[in-house]
Each structure stands twice: as C-alpha cells, then as structure tokens.
Amino acid sequence: MSIASLTDAELAAHLAQAAGRILLEVRTSGVFEGKALGKAGDETANAFLCNALRSARPEDGLLSEEEKDNAARLDQSRVWIVDPVDGTREYGEQREDWAVHVGLAIDGAATTGAVALPGLDGGIVLHTDAVTPLTKSPAKPRFLVSRTRPAKEAVAVSEAMGGELVGMGSAGAKAMAVVRGEAEIYLHSGGQYEWDSCAPVAVAHAHGLHCSRIDGSPIRYNQTDTYLPDLLICRPEYAEEVLALVAGL
C-alpha cells in the first residue's frame, strides 16, 4: 500500500513513527554527540518527513521548523505542520522526553495529527484516530512545566490550586503526558511556534482535553506569524478554574 492511500491520521502516525525510528538510529550510531547529535537528528528527520509529505500530499501546504517558510501555504486550506525533533536538547542529551510532531491544520484549526515518543521504552505514537478514555483525575492536580524555566503563570496557578509541579522536556512530551494521565494541566506562557503545538493540540483535543490560549481564545494555525506565545492543554474539569486564575494574575 502506498502512503498516498493512507488517511490523514494514518499518514501522520506512520510518518511520526518512522521518523522516530530514524532518530533512534542516528542517536545509537555513535557518530554524533550533544549539540551535533541534535543537529543531525533535526536534519535527517526533517528531510524524511518533508519529502514523504510532499510525495503523499502534493497539493497540501507544509510548514516545518527546519525548513525555510514558504508563504504560499497561507493561500492553502490544508497545511501540514511538523516538528522533526521537538525537544532537540533532550534528544541530544539521550533523554526520553522528546517527540516527533506531524500535524495537519485545516482552515487554521489543528484537526489531525500524531505525536511519537520514540525515547520511551518500546516507543509510543499517539494520534487522532486512536482515542483512549481519560483516567480518573487525582485530588492534587499536576502541572507540567519546563525543567529549567517554569512559566510564572503555571507556578502561580499551581500554588493557588494546591497543585504539584512536574518538570519535563519537550512540549509534545508534556502534552502527551496529560493525554496519558501522567498529569492534568499543561499551562505554558514562555513562547512557542506553531510546530510546537499543532500535532499535540490535535491529539489532545481528540482525546477530550481542553485546548486554548491562556486567555481562553482558540489556537489558530497557518498564520503569517508562526509565533504562539502561550498554550493551555488540560483536563476539561480544570479549564474554567485555570483560565479564571490566569485572568486574575
């Protein structure tokens, strides 16, 4: 079966998983270390993903962190938004909290996608066509934050809610931790780009999670300026309280 015949969700999952395997091969080759490993991984995975998407969906637009932006995408309804290695630092440090993002935005909304977590034992791919029920929420909400620079809003809201901060690497790893029931709230305000959240938002939304900007407004993709300052992904029962607390800061 050719990849062109796959559904969008199947294609996203297939490519994210394959890119993850490639990245593990690059990492275990022993040729690169540290920042050089991160650069080699980015370049190799990007070449694979972009070539595959252009072959499988030649009529669609494409936006990748590792490619020069092509403004022609702004005139297209369907745009694939990819991050070949989300968490390049963690990947280069031989950690497990990095991801591969393959997302599809249609008319500005993240509709379909897959996030691969190749560093986890056995590798995991979460996508919009394979939805599992949310687990029971614990009494104390866990907030996912950067390992090195937790967002001040996340710290303040966590304190107000009696929550617990959990440090983690890439944006995709954090978002998927909420999907997988390892945490309840991912509140980010330190700045990101469209490729950091398109696939994670598509997957999180498909699993029934709340996804928005931290002022409650929708997250829009395929914009002229690809910068996205903030993001909230959380279990729906926490959304109203979190947004109200952020608004009061």
Rank of each mutant, 00 (worst) to 15 (best):
L6Q: 14
A9N: 10
L11R: 04
A18E: 15
A19F: 08
I22M: 14
R27L: 11
F32S: 05
E33F: 09
K35G: 00
G38H: 09
D42M: 10
A45E: 04
A47F: 12
L49K: 05
L49Q: 11
L49T: 11
N51H: 13
A52M: 01
P58A: 12
P58D: 13
K68L: 13
N70E: 15
A71S: 14
A71I: 13
R73C: 08
L74V: 08
V79H: 03
V82A: 04
D83L: 07
P84D: 04
G87C: 09
G87W: 01
E90T: 07
Y91R: 05
E93V: 05
A99Q: 07
V100G: 12
H101T: 12
V102T: 03
I106E: 15
L117N: 02
I124S: 01
I124W: 07
L134V: 06
S137M: 12
R149K: 14
A156C: 01
E159C: 02
G162V: 08
L165G: 11
S170M: 07
A173I: 11
V178P: 00
R180K: 11
R180W: 05
Q192T: 14
W195C: 09
W195P: 04
P200I: 09
V201I: 13
A202E: 09
H207P: 02
G216F: 10
I219M: 14
R220P: 00
Y221Q: 04
L231C: 05
A239P: 09
A244Y: 00
L245G: 05
V246I: 12
V246M: 12
A247N: 09
